[in-house]
Design a protein around this nucleic acid. Structure first.
Lengths: 154, 154, 154, 154
DNA sequence: TTTT
DNA sequence: TTTT
């Protein structure tokens, strides 16, 4: 089968401080949201902004990096892939869906406002080289390499 | 504010023949889905495939092209942007969400199986060259000629 | 023919203040370079950085925006497409090549160091909506729309 | 420093059968070119096509896959990163440059014409799931299993 | 050097 | 609901 491609590229601002959970396996998971906005002309011909919110999920080392460096207001570049989970709502019995972006790579472009600016200690984590070992095995993983932690230079 | 980026790139197969609606304004809208799949190792170390389904929406001329050339089974490259609509479920009163990709560009890589293959009359519509003059100003980065804001259902 | 895709996405720092020329047609052109860097392990197992320089060219209104807002040191997100020009070197008679990225969209993430930071008046220009009229007609264009300048909200 | 992004996405046709070399280390390298084309209006208002040729390089397992499945005429999706090598021309003494795309991922969309079509044995190699374990740490974001730094010719 |  |  020709391989498929499922890629998302976002550049926007983080809505709240990320929430960190730890899976039963011990694997950390970070959840946060990114806002992107676009301008459009309304019916009166006036420019309006519309904001789109994106649900982001990161696993493993990438979750730890996000926990440590990403804050409410951070400007962030993120790459990932789309995934949609569904379940039956208990009350209505209807199937409900939640689409998330499983983060594969980020570049932190600023810290929180007062700390921030591109010259502040912006941390970044690229999906390159040994970066892949940030992810654990599992269905949401991009990778499962044999790279060990001391291969990571940060 | 620094401009944001909201970009999706998909390459996969179309699940069903697209559904075409016409907005009150007369503008066509195409809805279809694309499947992407990825392999991952399960906990037993066996390779599994997971399929992800993506809800696609196209407006204007791009909707017409999709109507005319995209079929169930078509292999398609598509670019777009993420958008999430929400409403209150009538029964449960809970907010429900639906995430879609508003298509900005496609490249048709095959037709339906029996017609298909890369040598069949693959049509493609690129967001460059002549493609651009299809677009008008409007709420949608990717919307096409003559769509006015009230044509857009969100 | 199935349409092709030629897309570049860069996020890096601008090496020098952009150079602005004006074509005989009156069309402005901006040339600048973006550095990206990556880490890799050398043969001794030490982490090294390698910098890649990208030649960027922008036309029309986008060139003017770059002239006005992009400086040496600016952190910039840019989308574009690859193009390679060639000519015969006068001395050797050999064909020489120069690959450039024709910019279609930018997001300015910082100004020059001292002015900069993500909170400074970062200007951004997105390749969306009426943004296309930034480009002139010509072989290097992404688009040639009938949008007039007063469609542009900035 | 905030991490940079250097990403290329191409979808086009392969110009010739790939050339395969083997590095002193035993690692395979594949070189090939992809053509993309775009339409533009010339000064007379007529539509013209321009073809852009992209120099592609792949290492390791990805090179083997390309050797085995990619042929002249293949339609290919490829992701990679830009890299430019330079050297001094022996005759003119001038510095000359060659820009290449180091391939990180491909999806083969067709074989050669007569074998081909989307239904032919399209192989694909995705940079996800099982694809990742091909990669080792190393200078190349996209390099594959077991490539050591001195396998990389720049 | 590709492709339609 | 696709595809191999």
């Amino acid at each position: 089968m020709a391989k498929s491609v499922n890629k998302v590229i976002l550049l926007g601002n983080v809505g709240k401080d990320p929430e960190i959970r730890v899976l039963p396996s011990g694997q950390p998971v970070a959840n946060f949201s990114i806002a992107t906005s676009e301008r459009f002309k309304d019916q009166q011909g006036n420019w309006q902004d519309r904001t789109e919110w994106h649900n982001m999920t990161a696993y493993g080392k990438l979750a730890e990096i996000i926990r440590d460096y990403v804050k409410k207001g951070s400007k962030l570049y993120a790459e990932g892939r789309l995934t949609t989970r569904s379940w039956d709502d208990k009350e209505s019995g209807k199937k409900v869906y939640r689409t998330e972006i499983v983060v594969g790579d980020i570049s932190l472009l600023s810290g929180r406002g007062e700390e921030g600016g591109a010259t502040s200690g912006g941390y970044s984590q690229q999906r390159s080289g040994s970066g892949y070992d940030q992810r654990s095995s599992g269905p949401d993983d991009y990778a499962n390499t044999g790279i060990t932690d001391d291969d990571i230079p940060f």
